[in-house]
Design a protein around this nucleic acid. Sequence first.
DNA 1: ATGAAAGCGCTAACAT
DNA 2: ATGTTAGCGCTTTCAT
Lengths: 325, 325
Amino acid sequence: MVTLAKVAEAAGVGESTVSRVLRNHGSFSRKTRERVMEAVERLGYVPNRIAGTLASAGSRLVALVIPSLTNIVFADVLRGASGILEENQHQAVFSVTDYDPEKEEALVAAMLAWRPTAVMLAGFEHTEGTVKILRASGCRVVELLDLDGTALDLAVGFSDRAAGAASADFLLRRGYRRIGYVGHDPERDTRAAKRFAGFRETLGAAGIPLVDRENHAGASSVENGRSGLERLLARTPDLDAVYFSNDDMALGGYFHCLAHGIPIPARLALFGHNGLDIGRVTPQPLSTIRTPRVATGQVAAELVVADAPSQVVDLGFELIEGATA
Amino acid sequence: MVTLAKVAEAAGVGESTVSRVLRNHGSFSRKTRERVMEAVERLGYVPNRIAGTLASAGSRLVALVIPSLTNIVFADVLRGASGILEENQHQAVFSVTDYDPEKEEALVAAMLAWRPTAVMLAGFEHTEGTVKILRASGCRVVELLDLDGTALDLAVGFSDRAAGAASADFLLRRGYRRIGYVGHDPERDTRAAKRFAGFRETLGAAGIPLVDRENHAGASSVENGRSGLERLLARTPDLDAVYFSNDDMALGGYFHCLAHGIPIPARLALFGHNGLDIGRVTPQPLSTIRTPRVATGQVAAELVVADAPSQVVDLGFELIEGATA
DNA sequence: ATGAAAGCGCTAACAT
DNA sequence: ATGTTAGCGCTTTCAT
């Protein structure tokens, strides 16, 4: 294995000189620089960041602990964050919790062992243990995609509760009165639960009850959305609108309606959440709320890279009228 | 910051003893073990893996350098791999190349600086530089999702060329003769290009020409599939079947047909690639090929963890008849 | 069963 | 401008 010492020897200079040249920090002559670079090339030297980090602190590693990779939402956040991190010579390290707070704690502990610059997590719901080790670690913490709660340090995203409320408000303004809900596992996906809470609250304030709901125990998916709507309609056929826990679910509902010739939105209105691209190209564009997923990752990464002071950044969301509600 | 030395002092034992207890390696008394664990708890000690790795070699880090996160294919591979890696106390570190070989080289170099156990890459197409540093690094290399080429070390996936051929074969057996193609950027997505090559080859062998094709310069997406099919049909209306570069594109084509009342498959047959879940729940299930994405990640991770000898693992694929062709 | 000490490959003073 | 040296926080002989 080629080490810095070998490069120094090959170039006929001291180790610290090689280090200075490689990091382009401190002073050295043009000639020295060339000699060093030549040796680096010739030997195929790749600096050992493990050693570098140990010697200097600052690992330039950012840990992302996310609930799921299947859910495009987190893939988008990851993409936004890793883009900015790369541009700033940081590395993204990630792991997946499957929406399990205990697993999250274990993973956070494992990540902390790499002494990351920051840890990014989804939402505000963490175990006491997670909060404790995070606090003790002294590293930056970013909580993503939730603003309805108290931030540990940095928080970036939008309010799910407000998004749910806006969705309800939209359906009410459109004149829908017999409204149902099709959702997925609310225990695990607490952000979807918050949307639903905001949704119900707004309906309630308008004196309109939620007529019926269907909750699938598993993860959100197009399939579960389709079967969920089917069950809901079997039980309560006379709904005029359905709110889905997200676009995947809503898309499933849409497919159910297409397959069974249910006119949309005349006979039944559908409303989703997330504003996925696919919802823009269905025969009828999906009525939904576009969430700032990539931007959330980007802003989170920017704050970390800049070592910004603790703060909460609300990126908001945008209602897309679409043609299904 | 709590270090092993502080734990040792607090527990009244030597550093090496703490190390042994923590790694459960070597011998120590029951009493000592308890004293150490008590101190660890009390101080909230989290071992520093940076230091541990430097002292012992073996970083237990596995680098995944993938073309895209938007493409669910790679998210699936990532998920498969990270699951197995976690179970075996390894960490996944990843970065995204945007299908750019030069960027891949830079990223591989950056990852190598962390002295990973293995580097996983998509496909066989790499720059000379990438191959060189990979070889020099001495770490394991896994090339994913491609078998049509020469492996550097380990390779796991299926043959895109064979998948394309199987798709053509299926359409021919169904009796389609005026066949078109809608694809995305073939320069970047070389695996899609290989599928297309296999597809054409099989058509050619049967004496059936490819009537027309439409290639979008950008990435694959539902939107580009929809607009691509629209352009293709505007130019060549009398096609009886269309092969798409993947399911996202095919889904877009499907939506175009739904929106324009084109009967499927009577008037036009559609065939995709990947076997995404969403294609199972559309009003008509999509005819496509299911690829072993999660399994690819899993098997790759298993081989790395087991430090298996160099080999090529063909996970095959499965044709799904569906109802669109 | 346990401790002392020598590194692992770098960086960061501190000299010169 | 450049070299010397003392760590960074562990793991790993090697003694005891």
